[in-house]
Each structure stands twice: as structure tokens, then as C-alpha cells.
Computed example of a mutant assay.
Amino acid sequence: MPRHRLSKGREMSSKDEKNLGQVVDKIAGMDEPQRGLMQRVHDVIMDAAPGLKPRIWYGMPAYARSAGSPALLTLRNDERLNLSVTEKAPLRPAGGPDGTLMPAAWYFETIDADTEKRVAEIVRSVLD
């Protein structure tokens, strides 16, 4: 399969590049301010885990280990913006006051440096 170089020096197959284009187009079709927020979260995900492959999963931007594997993370644009970890990712009990509950979704309305840092931590945690 031919390889294509995207910006930021990433190598991607033509299938991965097509899938990335679909995710970028999906985000570009959103209204502001959601579009800007989703684009920023997409960038944080790609920077935190350059090996994840973006693609559309059930109509949402999603990220998986490969084009043929299940999505580990999704971005959802409903009444609120949402970053979710799918059941295909390793989930661990939260501990502390949350006991055996396993955090799997986070809503956001804005993106600041602390939120970007936490999103990057969540993204890296699905790769463990």
C-alpha cells in the first residue's frame, strides 16, 4: 500500500489519510463554537497519541489503533461536547470515593490548558 506523508511528519496509508479527511470534514461541518473546540480536542488527541488512527465511528470522529480495529475514543457533538472512552479500551476502576466505577466519558464546554492536559492523559491511558 502506498505511503503518504502528512504535515507534522506523520506517515499514513492512503486508507488512513482518507479516514483522517473524513474526520476533518466532519469537524469542519460543525457550527462554531463547537467546531473550534472539537478541532482543538482532535489536535490534542493526535499530539498525545500520534499512532492512533482517526476515522468516523457511528457518525462520530473516533480514534483507533488501526483502520480495521475498534475505536478506543470518540468525540461527540450533541447538546454538549463529549470525549468518550469506548468499551474496547482498557478501563480501570477509579478508586477513592468512586470505588469500582470506571470513568468513561467527559463533557466539556471550553478548552483551556488544564483541560488539554487532562485530555492528553485520558488519551494516553487508552494505550496502556
Rank of each mutant, 00 (worst) to 15 (best):
D114F: 00
A89C: 05
R118P: 00
D112G: 02
M102R: 13
A94M: 05
P90V: 12
V119S: 10
T110I: 10
A120V: 07
D98H: 14
M102I: 09
Y107E: 14
D98W: 14
D112I: 03
L91I: 06
A104E: 05
K117T: 15
E109S: 15
G96K: 12
T110Y: 09
E121C: 01
E116C: 08
E109N: 15
D114T: 11
D98R: 14
P97F: 01
A120P: 02
A89L: 02
D98F: 12
G99M: 12
E116I: 07
I111P: 00
G99E: 13
A89S: 06
P90I: 08
D114Q: 11
T115C: 00
I111N: 00
M102Q: 14
Y107H: 13
V119Y: 10
T100E: 13
E121S: 11
T115G: 05
T110P: 01
L91A: 07
P97Q: 04
A89W: 03
A104V: 01
E121G: 04
D112T: 03
G96M: 02
D98S: 13
D98N: 13
R92P: 03
T115P: 00
W106I: 12
P103S: 09
A120H: 02
E116S: 11
G99I: 10
G99A: 14
P90F: 03
G95I: 09
M102T: 14
F108S: 10
A105G: 02
R92M: 11
W106P: 09
A120Q: 00
A120F: 06
P90T: 12
G96L: 04
G95T: 09
P103V: 07
L101P: 01
T110L: 04
G99Y: 06
P97S: 07
L101D: 01
L91W: 02
P90E: 06
E109C: 10
V119M: 12
T110F: 11
R92C: 04
D114N: 10
D98E: 12
M102N: 03
